[in-house]
């Protein structure tokens, strides 16, 4: 018995086979288990490949994801070193306690760490005016407080807001528009950058 070729089976699967070819393949598939299995496998593969095209994100969305990295690829200009803080705690990842009910979105609390410096951040969304309030504190593992330390909120590559920490290292940005922000803290040892605010998960 002569088996059907992969090429002929793919024409059959893609609907490119002529009526005569289709009829001949149908007859063969009814008596050949191997070719039937191959046809089913190719059909399934073609479906999965075609389906994948529908999962392509829009080009501008993909570019948004790519651009997200820009703030930390700024070249060093002989200034202070830059550190990327790692996220060590996020209430967003924590389940709510059983039975707990809330009205509105709960504040999001995050803790970032870079070396022996911790940065505690709380983001509260105000549904009424589509703004967020961001408060935080820069802490060290020792007893030192980071007083009068510059803190910046950047979005789309530009510094949008600036403030300084108070005597115990606290800072706040009140009612800023929802956006994706990078928060950076300028310490004497270098600049720490955090990626912590996104309009969809604040």
């Amino acid at each position: 018995m002569r088996h059907t070729t992969t090429e002929a089976l793919m024409d059959y699967v893609d609907g490119r086979a002529s009526e005569d070819e289709k009829s001949s393949i149908d007859s063969h598939l009814s008596i050949c288990k191997d070719c039937l299995e191959l046809k089913q496998e190719l059909q399934s593969l073609a479906v999965r490949l075609r389906e994948d095209a529908s999962f392509e994100p829009p080009a501008e969305l993909l570019q948004w994801g790519v651009n997200l990295f820009q703030p930390i690829i700024r070249t060093e200009t002989g200034g202070l070193p830059k550190y990327i803080a790692s996220l060590v705690f996020d209430t967003f990842d924590q389940p709510m306690f059983a039975g707990v009910r809330r009205v509105g979105a709960p504040p999001r609390q995050l803790l970032f760490r870079a070396g022996d410096v911790d940065i505690d951040v709380k983001i509260e969304a105000m549904e009424a005016n589509d703004r967020i309030t961001l408060v935080g504190q820069v802490l060290s593992s020792g007893t030192k407080f980071f007083e009068n330390t510059p803190v910046k909120l950047e979005s789309h590559g530009l510094v949008r807001y600036r403030t300084h920490t108070n005597i115990v290292g606290e800072f706040s940005f009140d009612e800023v528009p929802k956006d994706t922000y990078h928060l950076s803290v300028d310490l004497p040892e270098g600049q720490i950058t955090l990626f912590c605010v996104h309009r969809g998960n604040s």
Partner: peptide
């Protein structure tokens, strides 16, 4: 799109 953005950001954070 919101989910996509949030996950990109989380990947960067983690």
């Amino acid at each position: 799109a919101d989910v996509f953005q949030a996950v990109c950001l989380k990947l960067l954070e983690h």
